[in-house]
Write a protein that binds this DNA or RNA. Structure first.
Lengths: 208, 208
DNA sequence: AAATTATCCGAACGATCGTTCGTTAATTTA
DNA sequence: TAAATTAACGAACGATCGTTCGGATAATTT
């Protein structure tokens, strides 16, 4: 077996653990979920878990790192395509909302905020978040400039971006697939509300 | 000392405990905060805390109940005044944002979502949340109707309201008094973004 | 077939958890 | 002032916590 295959095998086992752990931790919280709970839900023994990570804190770090990395990779691809600012913002929102709804548990953990962690690890996560935030602010800023020909100060753009991410990150507080439509429908709603206000979409339909 | 004074004294002691406990729990999480931590931060002994509540879960309940009740009382007063739908929405947002920023720790706990709790207690909290949500949806729905003369279905209004509360409830993820202005400035930004889109406020300034 | 490595486990460690108990100081009431 | 109630405490309980250790089994390589 090649080195890569060994790594894949290993990551496959780890990925399963990260998924199921995130699901339980999203419900009970990090401190509220014991290693024995995680052993049971992953179908392994308590001590067997420590083959995949050295302690509980590292497990939390791995869930966060995996999530932010893949979210960042997806969004970075938006910059490669030659899109108009409006389309780019629309795709950024679709990406985030779709990923969010497909990975509700992990996103719940990733957005649960300050957690005491190893200095080096928290810095790695901080940089990932920072990079993602900067990317989003650039796209929002370019959109606003394209709409108004105004050069907004950074703090205005920054705050607007936080409002946008508030709409998206609050999804875990209410979203249910059966009641609130597909991820794309939610993303469209957020895009229209953010760009034109809460009555925009309906006005458009009405004027057709 | 009168009965009321006794009750005040008692509530004063409890209120102090709820405040300091919320502050610590907002940082470390419910399960991450031990009763010994709470005893230290409130300047009391471990066993002395149990004079004010019967167990840790009840402490969490009391923090939530106190917060939602006072938030609901504030917002209910909006319905008494004779306001236009636009003003009423604006005041709802100001109320929520101001309360949120003045009580960041408690709001962090109140918005941290599903927590395993006594059936009766969780039902009391659920009803408070439900009442507050219904009040907000009514105000948002009336505003949208006043702007467009369209009768929106309930699920549309419901989703728009969730987006609005997403912008507001995400505040704890980024807000700092020194960097992001007063609560009123944030509230105005959210009101303009929600009603007219992200470029509304600046367009208005530009057109003066 | 032997050697090596990757997985996995039962049992136990010290530490910390939420809670209870009996008792004492402080304050209010009668 | 005496009685009654409120407020607070130290010490200890059993339970559960994260983690470790030595050894077993399974998988892969030599």
């Amino acid at each position: 077996m090649s080195d890569q295959a060994v790594i894949n095998k290993r990551l496959s086992g780890l990925d399963e653990i990260l998924d199921k752990s995130a699901q339980l931790m999203a419900h009970l919280g990090y401190h509220g979920t014991s290693m024995r709970d995680l052993a049971q839900v992953t179908g392994r023994s308590l001590s067997g878990l420590y083959h995949y990570f050295s302690n509980k804190e590292e497990l939390l770090f791995l869930i966060n790192q995996r999530g932010f990395t893949s979210l960042l990779d997806m969004s970075n691809r938006l910059l490669i395509d030659d899109l108009r600012p409006e389309q780019r913002l629309s795709k950024l929102i679709s990406n985030h909302v779709t990923y969010f709804i497909d990975h509700l548990s992990e996103m719940r953990i990733m957005t649960s905020g300050t957690m005491e962690m190893n200095e080096q690890r928290s810095q790695i996560l901080w940089k990932l978040k920072q990079e993602y935030t900067q990317l989003a602010q650039n796209i929002v800023g370019e959109y606003m400039r394209s709409q108004t020909d105004v050069d907004y100060p950074d703090d205005v753009i920054s705050r607007k971006t936080y409002l946008l991410y508030g709409m998206m990150n609050w999804i875990f507080g209410w979203y249910s697939a059966t009641d609130h439509g597909t991820a794309q429908e939610v993303a469209d709603d957020i895009f229209h509300t953010f760009t034109k206000g809460c009555c925009a979409e309906e006005n458009r339909k009405k004027s057709l």
